[in-house]
């Protein structure tokens, strides 16, 4: 494949369980493609060089910076964004825990943080606080000071463990 710089290329991917297509130039960042082309504006764009983590989405399950990825690189991939979290019955358990623990204030960074936390929880069933903080170190939040997020993640990890029982660890079921 050789796409010219000004060429608009058709990109097809699975966004939150639905197949979606749109057009992107080679240089179009994935975050801009999601927002401007597919209208999925839940993902926020912060620093555009991989530092702040606001634009984090899950690519084939893995939390990734959507500003450090081109739309054309997402061809055929499974993408999950913050829009995938809440269901018919309302906010997800993680979102509710964020609300309970005041883990957000302005909310700009939250869309990305939730996607990191979801991947983290799917792979680490019983995390230590240090490990949660290490995972959150990939995100910048200027409102909260992170304490509420740490509490929310630990609480959800605990409640999910109780719900699945001690014998059915969910570690690595997403890789």
């Amino acid at each position: 494949m050789h796409a010219k710089a000004d060429q608009r290329i058709r990109v097809t991917l699975t966004l939150n369980g639905r197949e979606r297509s749109g057009y992107a130039e080679p240089r179009t960042q994935l975050c801009d493609f999601l927002r401007h082309e597919l209208g999925a504006t839940g993902t926020h764009v912060g620093c555009e060089h991989g530092v702040c983590g606001a634009c984090t989405v899950r690519v084939d399950g893995r939390a990734s910076r959507s500003c450090l990825m081109l739309a054309v690189q997402a061809e055929g991939r499974r993408l999950d964004t913050v829009e995938s979290l809440a269901g018919e019955e309302g906010l997800s358990d993680l979102q509710q825990a964020f609300r309970r623990h005041h883990a957000l204030q302005c909310g700009f960074c939250t869309a990305g943080i939730l996607m990191s936390c979801e991947e983290f929880l799917s792979r680490v069933a019983d995390p230590s606080e240090a490990l949660v903080r290490d995972m959150l170190s990939g995100h910048l939040c200027r409102c909260t000071g992170y304490t509420g997020m740490v509490q929310a993640v630990l609480e959800v990890a605990r409640s999910r463990r109780l719900a699945t029982g001690p014998d059915s660890q969910q570690e690595n079921n997403d890789v």
């Binding site: 494949m1 050789h2 290329i9 080679p26 240089r27 960042q29 555009e48 081109l70």
Partner: peptide, 11 residues
């Protein structure tokens, strides 16, 4: 910022 334009090749 956004990258300057480039061709994209996928060998």
């Amino acid at each position: 910022m956004k990258p300057a334009a480039f061709d994209y090749l996928r060998p």
